[in-house]
C-alpha cells in the first residue's frame, strides 16, 4: 500500500473509525494494568467528539489507539474500511502522516523553527497540503509567521500548532487537553478555531479533556471511567464555543 490517502472519501455522518471490543493491557512488573476494557466506539466523519474523564480513566490510552500510536491487546480498529489492528509500525506511521493531525496541551512546537517553518515542515509530509500562508491567516497569525516559538505567547503557540495540524488537511484532528495550559479567553479562542476547522475542512475533531464544560460544544460526549466507556451522550444542539465558559 503506497499511502493511506487513497482510502475512500466519506460523507459527513458516515463511520470514519470503528473500535470493536478494544482492550489494552500493560504489564507493569508483575501486575497487569487494564487501561482499556472492552471499548466499542464509532467515530463519525465530520463530528466533534469530546472524550471526558478523570486521570487514569483510560482516555489517553484511547487517544493513543485512535491516533495510531498504539495497538489494542484484543479487539479491532477499523479506519475508513481498513483494519489497523495489526498494522506495522510503518503503516501506522503513514496513517498518522496522512490522516491525523495532533494538537497537544503543551503545543510541542519545534523551537528551532519559526511559526511558518513549523507549519511548513508538516505541509511537507503530505501530497496536497493547504497553503501555509492560508492556514496561518486562518489562525490569525499571518503577521507572526517569522517568530520563533520562544517569541510567541501560549495562545499563539497553540494556534500555530493547530495551523500545523490543519495544513495537512487531516480527516482526523486529535486534541489532547488543547486548552489545558491556556487562560479562559485564549482557550475559548482555540476552541472556536477547532470548531471552525471541523466545519470548514469537514474534519473529525476528537478532543480529550477532563474539562467537562468543553463537552457542551461537542456533537457527542464520551465519558470514560476505569478503562471503560461509562456513557455516550449525543448533543442535539452543541453550543458555539464562544458561549461556553469555565
Amino acid at each position: 500500500m503506497e499511502n493511506l490517502m487513497d482510502l475512500p472519501a466519506m460523507e459527513s455522518g458516515q463511520t470514519l473509525m470503528r473500535l470493536e471490543n478494544v482492550s489494552r493491557h500493560f504489564v507493569m512488573g508483575e501486575v497487569i494494568v487494564e487501561a482499556l476494557r472492552d471499548v466499542t466506539l464509532e467515530i463519525k466523519a465530520g463530528e466533534i467528539l469530546a472524550i471526558l474523564g478523570p486521570s487514569g480513566s483510560g482516555k489517553s490510552t484511547l487517544l493513543n489507539i485512535v491516533g495510531g500510536m498504539d495497538r489494542p491487546t484484543t479487539g479491532r480498529v477499523i479506519y475508513a474500511g481498513e483494519d489497523l489492528t495489526r498494522a506495522s509500525d510503518e503503516r501506522l506511521g503513514r496513517f498518522r502522516r496522512h490522516e491525523v493531525g495532533f494538537v497537544f496541551q503543551f503545543y510541542n512546537l519545534i523551537p528551532d523553527l519559526t511559526a511558518w517553518e513549523n507549519v511548513e515542515i508538516a505541509a511537507g509530509l503530505v501530497r496536497s497540503p493547504s497553503s501555509v500562508a492560508r492556514v496561518l491567516e486562518e489562525v490569525g497569525l499571518a503577521d507572526r509567521a517569522d517568530h520563533f516559538p520562544s517569541q510567541l505567547s501560549g495562545g499563539e503557540q497553540q494556534r500555530v500548532s493547530i495551523a500545523r495540524a490543519m495544513v495537512k488537511n487531516p480527516r482526523l484532528l486529535l486534541c489532547d487537553e488543547p486548552t489545558g495550559a491556556l487562560d479562559h479567553r485564549t482557550g475559548s479562542m482555540v476552541l472556536s478555531l477547532l470548531a471552525r476547522v471541523s466545519r470548514s475542512l469537514g474534519s473529525t475533531v476528537v478532543i480529550v479533556t477532563h474539562n467537562t464544560v468543553i463537552g457542551e460544544m461537542a456533537d457527542r460526549v464520551i465519558r470514560m471511567r476505569s478503562g471503560t466507556i461509562a456513557e455516550i451522550i449525543t448533543n442535539p444542539d452543541p453550543l458555539p464555543p464562544e458561549r461556553i465558559s469555565w
Binding site: 491516533g67 500510536m69 506511521g93 496513517f95 502522516r97 491525523v100 495532533f102 519545534i110 523551537p111 509530509l125
Partner: peptide, 12 residues
C-alpha cells in the same frame, strides 16, 4: 521530545 513529535506526525 522533538523526535517523538516528529514520529507522531508521521516521520519515518
Amino acid at each position: 521530545r522533538e523526535l517523538a513529535l516528529l514520529k507522531m506526525m508521521g516521520f519515518s
